[in-house]
Design a protein around this nucleic acid. Structure first.
Lengths: 198, 198
DNA sequence: ACCTGAACACCGTTCAAGT
DNA sequence: ACCTGAACACCGTTCAAGT
């Protein structure tokens, strides 16, 4: 279910058998990063390496960019979002399914701001590869269904939505709930095809 | 015309008479920053100080944060945007005026990405002061007119729009024109009150 | 009153040496 | 094959000394 689209999550794990210390280090790095991100905020790479008890070089070997690390930390959250798309589509009309999916993204983002960063990271990672990545694919599914139904604008794509979603990151923690809802309402509304209008 | 709303642009220029070398330094710093921003990108503060021929401390004295500096560099652009709002409102229906104003923002952003950063900076600067700043005021004027006419959602405000506009910064230079238009269409559409719909 | 620039702190990145 | 950690580069920020 989580591998709903056949895209490799991380090319870092090579086909060759890996040494056990390497795997252990990788796990400790991810655990340390998750702890930092979950607690308050701001992960700095030196600190992560130290808390994980590995050298900086080791961190780099496993995760060349901060995005790679974040993507791994939010592995599960991303999977859940990806899995939710077809389920929502089965239960609701496309435009409504999309709105609910966006809502779910906002909920994740409320708990952990990094989720959005990870969502972005997942996209940027793959943008060079021309493929959009699992999150992009999930979004595309939702958008396409709506376009076919005539309730979503034909001239928008997943990248548009992800770019706009990045705004959630900048909201002040204090008034996140209200403002996130505002932004999502604007985005969801803007994606709708005003077929009955005018 | 530019001071259409009685908000001081910069509190750095104190009421007391300033020394001429101070003024000259300030001008040179702004000129250097403008040159850097206009040419390609990435302004680093050490470099600006060096190109301006002043010490780092001097740069700091004049512009405590990078945002302060950017805001000054884009002084004129911000003024023009602010001045455009009432003119557009006089010539078009509110929702249309808003759409055109957003379009103008995108045009500025196309030439110089920093404009958006400055727009954001201008807002963030003043967010602590509770006032929204000139750009926020201009946007509020546009939104309010639309709300009164019943063509703009009543539950959105200037900060929502500015948060979403920040997405323009992240667009790849290569496909800026197309994608900026997409994003603006979504934003403008999402701000509209779907009064005739449903 | 304002300026200079050495110095500090922080953080991402690399690489020679180790096992 | 993988790891370590000193070292480098970069950049924002501060501050003692100068005029």
């Amino acid at each position: 279910m989580s591998g709903w689209f056949g895209i490799a999550r991380s090319a870092v794990t090579a086909p060759t058998r890996r040494r056990s210390d390497s795997l252990a280090n990788r796990a400790r790095i991810v655990a340390a990063a998750r702890a930092v991100v979950t607690s308050d905020a701001e992960l700095n790479l030196h600190g992560i390496a130290q808390q994980a008890g590995v050298g900086q070089g080791t961190l780099y070997r496993h995760f060349p960019t901060r995005e790679d690390l974040l993507a791994e930390v939010y592995h599960h959250e991303v999977d859940e979002l990806v899995a939710a798309a077809p389920l929502l589509l089965a239960a609701h009309a496309p435009a409504e399914a999309l709105a609910q999916w966006l809502d779910r993204v906002a909920k994740y983002a409320a708990v952990k701001r990094g989720v959005i960063a990870a969502v972005e990271a997942a996209l940027w990672q793959d943008l060079t590869t021309k493929s959009l990545g699992p999150i992009g694919a999930a979004l595309t599914t939702l958008l396409d269904a709506g376009k076919e139904a005539g309730t979503i604008r034909a001239d928008v794509d997943a990248e548009d939505v992800i770019l706009l979603l990045a705004a959630l990151t900048r909201i002040d923690r204090a008034d996140y709930d209200d403002r996130a809802q505002s932004l999502l309402a604007i985005i969801a509304g803007g994606l709708r095809q005003a077929s009955t209008q005018r």
